[in-house]
């Protein structure tokens, strides 16, 4: 098919003659962009590309830098519990994330179990129940919102120190109570029936959970407040109580977004280093008793041991970082897939 004339102005790609057997073809339409539009598009495109590029380069850097360590350990890197990157007493160097990898997940799961119910509750309170003002003058709702956002701005190390000096002493009693009374659940048991209950996965997880509160609360509050007023009023006008409106309108509407909020929280929990490193007692033995001392996680491992263990140790650290990088990438991708799906189904 001949295309005559300048493409820029849009051309007829075929003459439309219905009925004479030639198939109909759509006409080519070209949108001519103005200079300012082109300029803006260019800027936006390159900004978007830079983000992807940086992400790709980080991955590439990690892969290249950690290659010697990964090559040295092979797949055993994923299962080896110990971290001995230099040969000692005639034993060859051997290191991996067998304990740290699983520990990362344990810390994150405990953190979510702590954070999610409190965050959803707080978010529902702020968006559904909190009065706009107290006594008609104090801006209650916006104050609560800012306090929550402010919690997110507190640096990790402050949480870490607070966790070590304030939280941990207070968690020991709870840990003991749990192992005494809920010890029939294997993970809450402690070996030999008693323990000092410090530096455990549980304390690390609770601390990270507290750190997640502001993020998950803030995101889910935002989602709840997006519930269309029309749907809320429809339910109210049919005699629904506030609790009903939450159950039958607000939560179904927010479903997808809430999954996203939890997943973003999970991403944060997986990557939290300083606070976890501050409170846990680093251990290289699998510890399934979450209230007894001894814990590990990839970011805490890196924070604690980076720079030790010579060249291979450094490369091993980067390999651990690579695993964490890939892992969080997968979690976040899954999150966006889930969010996209739920929204498509309800909207």
């Amino acid at each position: 098919m001949e295309r005559a004339g300048s493409v820029a102005y849009g051309t007829i790609t075929s003459e439309i003659r219905p009925g004479d057997g030639t198939p109909l073809e759509p006409r080519l339409v070209v949108t001519r962009r103005t200079r300012s539009d082109l300029w803006f598009r260019g800027t936006a495109y390159s900004a978007g590309t830079v983000v992807l590029l940086v992400l790709g380069l980080i991955g590439l850097f990690l892969a290249l830098q950690s290659w010697p360590a990964l090559h040295y350990m092979g797949l055993r890197f994923l299962t080896t519990p110990a971290w001995v990157p230099q040969s000692q007493h005639g034993h060859p160097a051997s290191f991996g994330i067998g304990v740290a990898g699983i520990g990362t997940v344990i810390v994150a799961v405990i953190a979510l179990v702590v954070a999610v119910p409190f965050s959803f509750g707080a978010a529902l309170f702020i968006s559904e129940y909190a009065p706009r003002t107290l006594l008609g003058v104090l801006p209650f709702k916006s104050a609560l919102t800012s306090v929550v956002d402010l919690m997110a701005a507190v640096p990790s190390i402050i949480y870490g120190l607070w966790g070590l000096l304030v939280l941990e002493p207070h968690m020991i009693g709870l840990s003991r109570w749990m192992s005494d009374h809920l010890g029939f659940i294997p993970i809450l048991k402690v070996p030999r029936g008693d323990s000092i209950y410090t530096g455990s996965f549980f304390i690390g997880g609770v601390l990270v959970g507290i750190m997640l509160l502001p993020i998950v609360t803030s995101l889910s509050r935002e989602i709840f407040s997006l519930t269309p007023v029309a749907e809320r009023e429809a339910a109210l006008s049919l005699g629904a109580s506030r609790a009903r409106v939450i159950r039958d309108v607000v939560l179904p509407f927010g479903k997808g977004g809430l999954v996203g909020a939890v997943m973003l929280g999970l991403g944060r929990a997986l990557g939290e280093a300083i606070a976890v490193a501050t409170v846990i007692s680093l251990s290289f033995v699998h510890n399934w008793h979450i209230v007894s001392p001894g814990a590990n996680s990839i970011p805490a491992l890196i924070a604690d041991l980076f720079g030790s263990g010579g060249k291979l140790g450094r490369e091993g650290m980067l390999a651990a970082g690579l695993v964490l990088f890939v892992f969080t990438l997968v979690v976040n991708t899954l999150a966006s897939v889930v969010v996209g799906r739920t929204r498509a189904r309800t909207r």
Binding site: E231, E233, S237, G239, D248, V249
Partner: peptide
């Protein structure tokens, strides 16, 4: 809630639960 049950309402924009 009881009052609203006996006095129904239809709004300006249709608002079925989607």
């Amino acid at each position: 809630v009881e009052v609203r049950r006996h006095i129904g309402m239809v709004f300006q924009r249709p608002n079925p639960f989607p």
